[in-house]
Nucleic acid binder design. Structure first.
Length: 253
DNA sequence: AATCCCAACAACCGCCGTCAC
DNA sequence: TGTGACGGCGGTTGTTGGGAT
């Protein structure tokens, strides 16, 4: 479908080229964030072109939507992708490919944009270093059936050696009703806990369907790891881990 | 201290599917 | 049924901050 020039990729919010010229681009200011948040608090999500129109924000409808979903929305988690989340991303990507929004559904609080960024900046980069096509069957199978189970074992070992810390964490998480380490259930969002749990359940089922010989759920309350300092933000791509992966890939040849 | 480089993240763009008229 | 408006998705680019030189 051909779009009119006036749309500028923004679904035609601004009809005249004169208005289009005044569209703001680049980073959002605190004031803009505030205006957008206030509007959505009052009127709810959706009707993005109306948001731009009625708030006076010189942003496209798409821009408003993106800003809300990726940044302003309550429960959005940014940074510190946990080991479990990293493994989850790898696993789900091996299943669904670049279906970022679908993958994001299984990582409560994470946005498709963040997962996409993680994939491109970390996984693709490592694959390149290993002189491997990130979408090749060899790379994906090695990740999924050899490397990831190994990473999982390590996480479990780490968890069992610091059981006390996990117990403390788990109780803390339960007290906060915070299954995903940062997204706290609130009166305005009472469904978060069950939402996260159902996502986990779905994933557990899909793992067994996949025939994979491991389970990301095997280490107890996986989601609680997300809140644990020391787990959150830990990089899967250490030199040692990459070396192991390299050996596995070499063996496959 | 200045600059360069790179990783991480935010935001934009174009395409596509859906829906209302 | 055709058309336009809109929202969503994935790819890509721009910006920024921190580390290296």
């Amino acid at each position: 479908m051909e779009r009119s020039l006036s749309e500028n990729g923004s679904s035609g919010t601004y009809g005249s080229s004169e208005e289009e010229m005044s569209i703001t681009k680049g980073p959002w200011t605190e004031e803009e964030d505030s205006v957008l948040s206030d509007y959505i608090t009052l009127h709810g999500e959706g009707h993005w072109n109306s948001v731009a129109r009625y708030t006076g924000l010189k942003r496209t409808g798409k821009g408003c939507r993106l800003r809300w979903l990726n940044y302003l929305r309550p429960n959005v988690r940014r940074g510190n992708i946990t080991l479990q989340e990293q493994l989850m991303i790898l696993d789900l990507h091996s299943r669904w490919g670049n279906r970022w929004s679908k993958i994001a559904e299984h990582l409560p609080g994470r946005t498709d944009n963040e997962i996409k960024n993680y994939w491109r900046t970390r996984v693709v980069k490592q694959a390149k270093q290993l002189k491997c096509d990130v979408n090749s069957k060899q790379f994906r199978d090695t990740l999924r059936f050899v490397w990831m189970p190994r990473m999982l074992e390590r996480i479990q070992a780490q968890a069992s050696s610091s059981g006390q810390a996990q117990t403390t964490l788990t109780s803390k998480v339960q007290a906060q009703s915070d299954p995903c380490g940062g997204a706290t259930a609130t009166a305005s969002n009472p469904g978060l806990l069950s939402e996260a749990s159902s996502a986990v359940d779905v994933h557990e089922a899909s793992l067994s369907d996949s025939g994979a010989s491991y389970s990301l759920m095997g280490c107890g309350s996986w989601s609680s790891y997300g809140a644990e300092e020391g787990y959150g933000g830990v990089d899967l791509w250490t030199d040692e881990n990459i070396w192991f992966l390299q050996q596995q890939l070499a063996d496959d040849f």
